[in-house]
Each structure stands twice: as structure tokens, then as C-alpha cells.
Computed example of a mutant assay.
Amino acid sequence: MQIEEKKHQILQAATEVFGTYGYKKTSMQDIADALDISRPALYQYYKNKEAVFLALVEHTLNLGEQAAIQGFSHSEDSFECLLHGIKNMEQVLFGPIFLKPNGKELLTLSKKLAPDLMTSFEMQLFNKIVCVLDKAVVEQRINLKTLNVEVSDVAKIILQSVDGIKNASESLEELDQQLNLFLTVFWKGLQKQGN
């Protein structure tokens, strides 16, 4: 079996184990047991639990970025791009979290153990949102002049609101519904400014 394929299997198992037991209560033995391998075999790939967790965060953020990119190029319509970019990303990043008892703890921990990865990801997402908003302004689909705000300010509000919605949601379905509602109302408000 190839090294990368084995690492992928380890990360899949780690998602299950961390989500079920939480980071603190999870041991390398728990991850090894989930894979039906020995603990020494697991140590050939990762030196400790934190290394597994950091690799999991990086892998998940990469998947989230790919999903967001696909969503942001979903359509020619700026609103559809924004909606699908954010929702695709949220589905990939947080879908597994809502299915596990300790999932939300993992999100908080990601910010503590992998701040550089999280900041880089958030910056990339911020830049994608700015591009979508810039396009919408140029195409006169939204008007920010009457609000006297910059595109970057609007992008920050969107990201902060999405983060709040994510933290308040109890299920993936609720997250999806709330994101739909927020982005639709927010976008319509920006359109009204042009009239």
C-alpha cells in the first residue's frame, strides 16, 4: 500500500475517533484500533496524536478550499457563486463535525493548534468573497456606494456572520438553512441599495 493512501486511511479513522472521543481522550492506540493496525505501525506515519490532528486539519482545509473553489465558479451569477462557494465549503469542512459528539470541540481546537493553517484558509476564503463582490459591483448587481463601505468590509461581515451561524447551528441541515437565509437576505439588502 502506498504511503499517501495509508495516511489518508489514518486521517479518515482519526476523524471518526477524534469526533467520537474528543481530542483529549483520544490516544494513538484508539486511532490504531480503528484502523486495525498496531500502535508501532501508526507511529511509522505520525509521531504523535498532535501530528495526526494537524495533518487532519490541513487535509480537511484543503478539501474545503477545493469545494469552495468549485462553488465559487458554479455560475456566472455573483450571488449563486457566493452562495455555493460558502455552502460547499461549509458542507465539506463541517459536515463531519455535526455528525460527531465532540465535533465542535475539534473546530475550536483547530484554531488553537493550527492557527497558521486556519488563518491562511480564512484569508483565501476572504479573497474569494472579495472577488465575487467586486464582480457584482462592476456588473451593478449590488451597490455599496450608498452604504459608504468597501468590498473588504462587506466580505468581513459575511465571514463573521457565517462563523456565528456555524457556531449556533445544531445540525448540518440547520446550518444549510441558516446560510441560505442569511446570504439571501444580505444580498437582497445590497441590491436594494442600488434602487
Score class of each variant (00 low, 15 high):
129 I>M: 00
18 F>C: 07
116 D>Y: 08
148 N>S: 13
62 N>V: 00
68 A>M: 08
145 K>T: 09
95 G>K: 14
148 N>T: 12
42 L>T: 04
39 R>D: 05
73 S>Y: 02
23 Y>A: 09
77 D>I: 11
194 G>Y: 13
125 L>I: 11
131 C>I: 13
182 F>S: 02
195 N>K: 15
117 L>G: 01
168 A>T: 08
185 V>M: 15
83 L>M: 11
169 S>I: 01
4 E>G: 00
132 V>P: 11
186 F>Q: 09
128 K>E: 15
23 Y>T: 07
159 L>D: 04
104 K>T: 03
137 V>Y: 08
188 K>I: 05
26 T>C: 07
41 A>E: 08
85 G>L: 10
29 Q>Y: 04
38 S>Q: 04
90 E>F: 12
84 H>I: 03
167 N>I: 05
19 G>L: 01
44 Q>E: 04
176 D>N: 14
184 T>P: 04
165 I>V: 08
40 P>N: 03
36 D>K: 12
71 G>V: 06
45 Y>V: 05
109 L>D: 03
30 D>Y: 05
61 L>Q: 00
176 D>P: 02
193 Q>R: 07
30 D>P: 04
12 Q>M: 10
187 W>P: 07
52 V>S: 00
38 S>W: 06
112 K>L: 14
131 C>T: 15
172 L>M: 14
89 M>R: 15
169 S>W: 05
190 L>W: 11
176 D>A: 13
88 N>A: 05
64 G>S: 07
49 K>I: 07
182 F>V: 10
141 R>Q: 12
108 T>D: 13
66 Q>L: 12
72 F>V: 12
189 G>V: 06
171 S>I: 01
31 I>S: 06
161 S>V: 08
39 R>M: 11
128 K>N: 12
32 A>K: 05
195 N>A: 14
47 K>G: 04
23 Y>H: 09
178 Q>I: 01
191 Q>Y: 07
24 K>T: 07
104 K>L: 11
170 E>W: 10
80 E>G: 06
